[in-house]
Simulated assay, not measured.
Amino acid sequence: MTLKTDWYERDSRFIPGHWQPAVLLDLALSRGIDSHRLLRGSGLFHEDILSGQARLSPQQFLCLIDNSRRLLDADDSSFLFGQRLLPGHYGAASHALQQAANLQQALDILGRQRALLSPLLSPRLLLDERHAHIYWLDSCGAGAQQRFLLEASMTALVGMSRWLAGERLPWRASFSHAQPRYVEQYWVHLGENVQFAAPVDVLSIPREYLHRPWPGASAIAGQVAQQDSECQLAALGFRASLLDRLYGHLLAHIREPLQLEGVAQAFGMSPSTLKRKLQKHDSHFQEQLDLARKHMALYLYRVKGYSNEEVASYLQFHDATNFRRSFKRWTGLAPSALRQLLEGLG
């Protein structure tokens, strides 16, 4: 079966310049950075953004982020950017977020409207018996900007939920990178329950907070805003990126033998075309397959309580040694070390 090409790619120009890019521009301009230097290499001028007509590709947005990081050269840049991101001023999708009745509804909106609300990183929600976990997928090949975007995205969700809930929620943030020298910025913006050198980048919260009512929400206004935001997406013609769609396809077929040729056929293109598109996103097929296998393995350990043998079998590894070697390459941990870590988290 051929899948529809309902996705955006790294060079798709659809991000309104006066939305998320303008948030970053305003932050940099407030610190005295020249707009021409900020936009250098992006193919845009400040006047383009002010016109309200400019549409950026993810590649252009990533260029702006790279320029801003270097020119600001400040430890708090990503966190201050994140504080300003959500609900944002992005039309009906932002209105829908602002009228969310609870955290569950806000996360549902953020996921459905990710092309509008979070075009560079795709948020995903995973539930286990006691916790809700939100992790983000690289939508367009963020490369060196990945950590900046993760810090901003987690800060955005923590800040928005605190504002709409009217209280600080007990989030736990885990990052796969080592503890940075500016760890105090994490404590200030995300709380002190932050872990580094974790198997995956994830934000977690006890499940009972998902359905606690948020004050000030309007059910009617929220429903209308959600309908309008669906019209926004319909006008775009897509909801997610190519990498996001590929990840979903790989997860859905993770127990099958997955090869570049078969997956390319499912996406209605030749293997060489899929390979070229992945190269454009600074990735390759094996990297995307490993990512899906890594997340599925963590899910099976954490949520399903599978043994090493059961996880290896589920992922079609018929050699336990090869599975252990692959798992350590994916996460930096041996399966036994992961079990000890999960037991410590409770």
Rank of each mutant, 00 (worst) to 15 (best):
L236I: 09
L85H: 06
W136H: 09
N308D: 15
L56N: 10
A156K: 01
S12F: 03
I65M: 05
D201Q: 05
Q53K: 15
L150P: 02
L345K: 14
F285L: 11
L157T: 06
L85E: 07
S270F: 00
G216Y: 15
L164G: 09
G43R: 05
H281E: 13
R69W: 01
Q265R: 15
E310F: 10
D66Y: 04
H253E: 02
S161H: 06
S42I: 00
Y8H: 12
N322P: 02
A197G: 13
G344W: 04
V202P: 01
E184I: 01
L333D: 12
Q105D: 13
V202F: 02
S30C: 13
R130A: 10
S307K: 12
F327I: 11
S161K: 06
H318K: 12
H133W: 05
L164Y: 06
A312R: 10
A156M: 02
A96D: 04
L164E: 07
Y306L: 14
R212C: 08
F317N: 05
R181T: 05
A240N: 08
L24C: 09
L190C: 04
Y209H: 14
Q60S: 07
P257A: 12
S313F: 10
P16A: 06
H131L: 13
G143N: 05
R69Y: 03
P180K: 00
N322A: 14
G248N: 11
Y299H: 15
L345Q: 15
M1L: 15
R302Q: 14
Q316A: 14
M269I: 12
G166E: 12
E343P: 00
P271N: 03
K294V: 11
D138R: 06
I49G: 00
A92V: 11
S30W: 08
P199C: 08
L150N: 02
R40N: 10
S204W: 01
R70T: 11
Q59M: 08
L169T: 07
L300F: 03
E230Y: 06
H281I: 01
V183K: 04
Q195E: 14
V200G: 03
E47K: 05
H318C: 12
S153D: 10
A217M: 10
N308E: 15
L341Q: 15
P119E: 02
H131C: 08
S272F: 09
N102K: 13
L300M: 14
Q60I: 00
L137F: 05
S204R: 01
R147V: 04
Q265D: 13
L24P: 04
Q288I: 03
P16T: 06
E47R: 14
I220Y: 12
A235E: 14
A178D: 13
S68D: 01
I33E: 00
Y135R: 12
V224S: 07
C63M: 14
Y186W: 02
Y182D: 02
H281R: 11
L137I: 09
S42A: 09
T155Q: 00
L39Y: 03
R339D: 08
I220C: 10
G32V: 07
K304D: 15
W187D: 13
I205G: 00
G332T: 15
S42C: 11
D26C: 06
L278P: 01
R84L: 07
G41Q: 03
R239G: 07
Q316C: 11
